[in-house]
Nucleic acid binder design. Structure first.
Lengths: 135, 135
DNA sequence: TCTGTATTTGCAAATGTTAGCATATCTAAA
DNA sequence: TTTAGATATGCTAACATTTGCAAATACAGA
């Protein structure tokens, strides 16, 4: 039954794609509304190259989909449920005791924020760091 | 509102912990039953050092808990719901067209396997390779 | 229509950092 | 001493980040 190895490998790859704060942030923002590279650059406060590069990772792994709109490229989540699933992962985080309370309140804030900011099923909307290691 | 950065960082760290096939496999096996390092070594077919190393990553991130039993060390999931949540991530995997069908059936197999092998909800019980890159 | 320019995005290379593996050594319990 | 685990070290490969440049498009002017 080698399928276990295959599937755990695919899952690991998915988790690898998500193991970057900027990519998490991008997904978080795309849950609210479809955005261009420029808009994400402003929201996240990073260079366009950084945004584009992280988007290319998400794109090549089919988590986001692009669609050109004139000179802009608008990105949206292929499966919006992804953002919800990601947020559920908060339940498995056990913060360090030092940062415990800060994290607890932060998690609650985000849970509230994500809960209220429901993405309007919308049409063609148009406007507008850190490193993470394991050991 | 810097909490977004804090939380996305914590989430990214969690995903980083899970971005390794062996660690996924370990969680998968620990969902069925608590296991020792030696047992995991046999099941996964890797060296005890490799098992111990990956367990230390899981342990330092509070995903698994150890308990000595004589000369053995038994590991179990801190929160068994973690395994279920991980499996839900399969829904966001879009396999390459080449491997499409193989993956589809593999995913179904695993979903079935995980579905049936339910770990007894038990109380305070006390008993008893590949690399993954993103781009 | 054609041309030049600014805007937006993608892509590639260079550099620094880190994870994973294999091997070996070390510690704890019986 | 033996068995089960944990940890340290060196090597390799992959990742993150920045910088620069190329491609595509829109728009203004002739």
């Amino acid at each position: 039954m080698p399928y276990r190895a295959v599937v755990s490998g695919e899952l690991a790859k998915l988790f690898g794609v998500l193991s970057h704060p900027i990519r998490i942030r991008i997904i978080e923002e795309l849950k609210r509304e479809d955005l261009t590279v420029g808009a994400l650059k402003d929201i996240l406060g990073i260079t366009h190259a950084a945004v584009s590069q992280q988007l290319s990772v998400l794109r090549s792994n089919h988590l986001v989909v692009e669609s050109r709109q004139g000179r802009n490229v608008v990105y949206h989540l292929r499966n919006p449920a992804l953002a919800i699933w990601i947020m559920e992962g908060l339940g498995f985080i056990l913060p360090d005791t030092s940062e415990m309370e800060k994290m607890r309140s932060a998690i609650k804030d985000v849970q509230n924020a994500w809960g209220s900011e429901t993405k309007p099923v919308k049409a063609i909307a148009k406007k507008s760091n850190t490193k993470t290691r394991v050991k």
